[in-house]
Design a protein around this nucleic acid. Structure first.
Lengths: 214, 214
DNA sequence: TAGTAGTAAGTGAACGTTCGTTCATTTAAT
DNA sequence: ATTAAATGAACGAACGTTCACTTACTACTA
């Protein structure tokens, strides 16, 4: 019996033992911790079961198989990340204000959830990337498209393909946070990200993106 | 018998059968292909041996163990990448010219070697990252430091920490190439990187980095 | 209210497979 | 003759997954 043959009729007539709501959460969380610490190689179902305090068989009540577990964890984290990113954001904001909100939201979320970020980055660069792909992103990228096109129309932003915009706007932020999480800069020396650097980087990005006055 | 107990005395007196110079190359290459296609999970020594056309035991003549193989492959690719990046580059170049050379070198190398780039990106976001770390980078980052500090002194570049410089200068390029290699942009729609986008992105980055005239 | 039937949650042990690695031996060089 | 390269078979361990079974919860009966 697994998640795909869940008996909804029985569930709604209350004729079954309910699931422990915490178990799925704990399993996903421990899986992420193991992947971050030891890589995808290091995620074994036996070890995960032990870490989560359940039987190996229990994991298969909540997830179809190992791949499903990884993908479900990825989808959930992606959703959480988008939520955090868009807190207080509105596509109708001025370009500069909207950018500032998103930079700060992302920065704080990543710094407070380094395991989650690390996991997502591993996922993004693995063959699982294709599986997760565009299931969640549509809402998000629609909102971003709106925001970008409005900014271009208002001459707050130079006209450019959305991918170029994205790469220039957010890739530097991700890179800085990665330096911080790895505790190492390019030279290999210790690195700690501070607010000043974040603001400096953002202002440089904004300057680059501002349309040239004719 | 493995690489660590290699008999140099016997070797230089020509009393031993020489290694097949191609084998190590083929093993590394196939390993990279497997990792890119199936992730670190998907790299098994049996399958790798079959793919490389050798016995599993042969791999252990050239590499201490699986981790050593992965790390050696990573180190070699890192070296190759730096070589390609610095072709025609000189720390004494003007800032703009130096940046342009590096952008073009990197772009072309990545586009011509997508497997290698993908492998390095997986490595960078895995626990192996720490193992490779700063063994190769010192030459490279010294050169970059020179280049950056000279540019700041010459007022070609706004003063900023080297990590902020790096993040703004090169993270966007990496992101654009990743979109291209994945054949998908942010929206999930097909994406092909063209020269125009590369030049546009570089010019925006350079504009952002230029010091504000007082 | 106490007891029972019915359901799925939850489990530990076991399954067959595949893993990374090694060993005993053969092959191909000098 | 000497050396290491190269191998196929074999090792124990660990893998992902399943099975037979027990536990705990709910609904219903009386």
């Amino acid at each position: 019996m697994n998640v795909r043959s869940f008996n909804f009729a029985a569930y709604y007539s209350n004729e079954m033992r309910p699931r422990d709501a915490d178990k799925e959460r704990v399993i996903k969380k421990k899986a992420i911790e193991m992947i971050v610490k030891y890589g995808f190689d290091g995620l074994s179902m036996h070890k995960l079961a032990k870490a989560a305090g359940v039987s190996p068989a229990t994991i298969y009540i909540y997830f179809k198989d190992r791949d499903d577990l990884i993908i479900q964890a990825g989808l959930e984290e992606e959703l959480k990340m988008f939520d955090a990113t868009l807190k207080g954001f509105d596509a109708s904001m001025s370009f500069e204000e909207g950018m500032r909100v998103q930079w700060m939201n992302r920065t704080h979320y990543f710094l407070e959830n380094p395991d989650q970020m690390n996991f997502m980055e591993q996922l993004k660069h693995s063959p699982y990337h294709h599986e997760i792909g565009t299931r969640v992103e549509s809402n998000f990228s629609n909102l971003m498209s709106q925001f970008v096109h409005k900014a271009i129309d208002n001459k707050e932003l130079a006209p450019l393909p959305i991918e170029v915009f994205w790469a220039i706007s957010f890739a530097p932020l991700y890179q800085l946070v990665k330096f911080h999480i790895n505790k190492k800069g390019i030279t290999g020396s210790p690195y700690v990200l501070d607010d000043q650097s974040i603001h400096l980087a953002l202002s440089i990005v904004l300057k680059g993106l501002k349309p040239t006055v004719q």
